[in-house]
Computed example of a mutant assay.
Amino acid sequence: MRIGRALSTAAAPMGALVRAVYPPQCLSCGTLVGSDFGLCGPCWRETPFIAGAACAACGQPVPAGDDEETALCEDCHQNPRPWAAGRAAMLYRDNGRRLVMALKHGDRMDLAWPMGRWLARVAAPLVTPDTLILPVPLHWWRLFRRQYNQAALLSQALAKATGLAHCPDALIRSRHTGSQEGRSRDERHRAVTGAFRIHPRHAARISGRPLLIVDDVMTSGATLAAATAACLAAGAGQVSVLALARVAKEA
């Protein structure tokens, strides 16, 4: 105990020194802020976090007054999802899009930790103590070129924030599906149908267990639907999905 207190006491001045040399900066614009891993006021206001009533299947905002546990957006009414429930932390526009792009293509892996905390806030209705968190995988060739999987960084940060179990290689993308950008909804679904499978080493671990699949962006939901289908085919229990950002039609 004395050693622990001594280390804590010694660490406090060191922390103050680090902050004096490297003061906390806004994650988005670099402006000085009061705490680590935060956004300044203007950037926070420009980040479209989803609050209030949201679609129970994809997290898109729905009109106030709807039952948050059962309300569905128009998109999910027209296109039923194979997963049980879903949420998103923000909309994919404005500063939300800039932050996602910085993580995905700007090598801003430092963003994963605060993004994991944002995800944890909206994940509460989706998880139980035995939920297993897993990311949407990249094909090995894309992973080789990018050197990291942004969805895996997010799922790892979420697991740390919630204390839930994490299995980053539970899903395998067995073929290269290419970019979904510019494809229609039907083309997106055709491109990823059958593209995922459960790693044989983890088949027993997911059998009958509730799962939460994490991705950076949900557009049509095709990728998450294909990943969900692979998990259910392998005998998983209830499958839910969570995206950092949702591409949504504005009201």
Results as ranks from 00 to 15, higher is better:
128 T>P: 00
128 T>Y: 01
129 P>E: 03
129 P>Y: 03
133 I>M: 05
134 L>G: 07
134 L>W: 09
135 P>R: 15
138 L>Q: 14
138 L>I: 03
139 H>P: 03
141 W>F: 15
141 W>P: 04
141 W>D: 14
142 R>K: 11
144 F>N: 04
145 R>F: 10
147 Q>L: 08
147 Q>C: 05
149 N>F: 14
150 Q>P: 04
151 A>H: 07
151 A>Q: 08
152 A>K: 10
153 L>D: 04
154 L>I: 12
155 S>D: 14
155 S>A: 15
156 Q>R: 13
157 A>N: 01
157 A>E: 00
159 A>N: 04
160 K>H: 10
161 A>P: 06
161 A>V: 05
161 A>L: 09
161 A>Q: 10
162 T>P: 01
162 T>I: 00
164 L>V: 13
165 A>G: 10
165 A>Y: 06
165 A>R: 15
166 H>I: 10
167 C>A: 10
167 C>Q: 13
169 D>A: 13
169 D>G: 11
170 A>D: 08
170 A>I: 13
171 L>Q: 00
171 L>Y: 01
172 I>E: 03
172 I>H: 01
173 R>D: 06
174 S>G: 13
175 R>D: 08
176 H>S: 05
176 H>T: 02
176 H>A: 12
177 T>L: 01
179 S>F: 08
180 Q>E: 07
181 E>P: 03
184 S>R: 07
185 R>V: 07
187 E>A: 15
188 R>A: 01
189 H>N: 13
191 A>Q: 12
192 V>P: 12
192 V>W: 12
192 V>K: 14
194 G>F: 11
195 A>P: 13
196 F>W: 09
197 R>W: 09
198 I>W: 12
200 P>D: 11
201 R>H: 06
201 R>C: 06
202 H>T: 11
202 H>E: 11
203 A>F: 00
203 A>K: 13
203 A>Y: 00
207 S>C: 09
207 S>H: 15
207 S>T: 12
207 S>Y: 07
209 R>N: 05
210 P>C: 00
210 P>W: 03
211 L>W: 02
213 I>R: 06
214 V>A: 02
215 D>L: 09
216 D>L: 12
217 V>C: 00
218 M>R: 15
218 M>E: 15
219 T>E: 05
219 T>Y: 05
219 T>S: 04
220 S>Q: 03
220 S>V: 11
221 G>L: 14
222 A>H: 07
223 T>H: 05
223 T>V: 03
225 A>N: 01
225 A>M: 02
226 A>F: 00
226 A>W: 01
226 A>G: 04
227 A>G: 10
227 A>T: 02
228 T>P: 08
228 T>M: 05
230 A>L: 10
231 C>N: 06
232 L>R: 15
232 L>D: 08
233 A>Y: 02
233 A>Q: 15
234 A>K: 00
234 A>S: 04
235 G>A: 02
236 A>Q: 15
236 A>H: 10
236 A>G: 05
237 G>P: 02
237 G>I: 03
238 Q>M: 09
239 V>H: 07
239 V>N: 10
240 S>N: 14
240 S>A: 08
241 V>G: 04
241 V>K: 03
242 L>S: 08
244 L>R: 14
244 L>F: 15
246 R>I: 08
246 R>N: 10
249 K>T: 15
250 E>T: 09
250 E>L: 14
